[in-house]
Amino acid sequence: MRRPKIFYGQLFFTLIVCAFLIVPAILSALAGITENFFVGLKSGFTFRWIIEVWELYSETIYLSLLIAVFCLIINLFIGVLAAYSLARIGGRTARIVEEMIVLPVAIPGLAIALALIIMYGGFRDFRTSWLFILVGHVLYTLPFMVRSVLAVLTSTNFKILEEGAASLGAPFWHRFIKVVLPNAKPGILAGSLMVITLSVGEFNLTWMLHTPMTKTLPVGLADSYASMRLEVASAYTLVFFVMIVPLLIAMQLLANSQRQTKNLIQDEDAH
């Protein structure tokens, strides 16, 4: 097919934008495994920076994973229940509640962290434990879980399904576990991936909430950017990418498969 000239102009522009986003990430990955980045790639490849990062910062990785897992567990409990209730209650009430739950995303993390410190900073044991960070992460990730599940629930006819189950004599908890949860599964899955990704990468709240004993991965990253040589900082960033990229790919695959199912259903309808 003859492509108009403007096609190549736009393609070039898009590639430039893409390069702006991706080239630094590639540079960072390369710098992390290069002997001396200033000299360039010819100085040779090495894993020594990664090993150094591991020795210096492995604690931060463990803590980030620990917080992400607990954050997910809490979200699975309170978030899914909240989303279900909101889908059930519906109307204005639900919209207002949803609007409030989303507030922690709308307000800069810095402000929320400040509020938490002013309110609870006096409780020393709490302030110095990782639970203090967990609280911030739960506040920040809850809206994503709730919305993700809510979106799936409102797009399925779960109310009719549930009424059907009720008409067959299923009690509430049975209905919830056998009917509601399976139907909400895609939303729960997408929400879970989101919660973990966001929790592992959260910095704005965490920087204010952390203590020298409770450093997460992004806090460690900021630390290394300020005080370590470029190669170590890059190696550390590389470790972060390795953790986060699979989550991102999983999210995209999930979104694609859902879109495909949707298209399939629409195609069927069209015939």
Binding site: L21, I22, A25, L198, G201, E202, P218, Y225
Partner: peptide, 12 residues
């Protein structure tokens, strides 16, 4: 590629 940086924290 264009949407990957969505999950990068501000520090990164």
């Amino acid at each position: 590629l264009l949407t990957f940086p969505l999950a990068f924290p501000g520090v990164v």
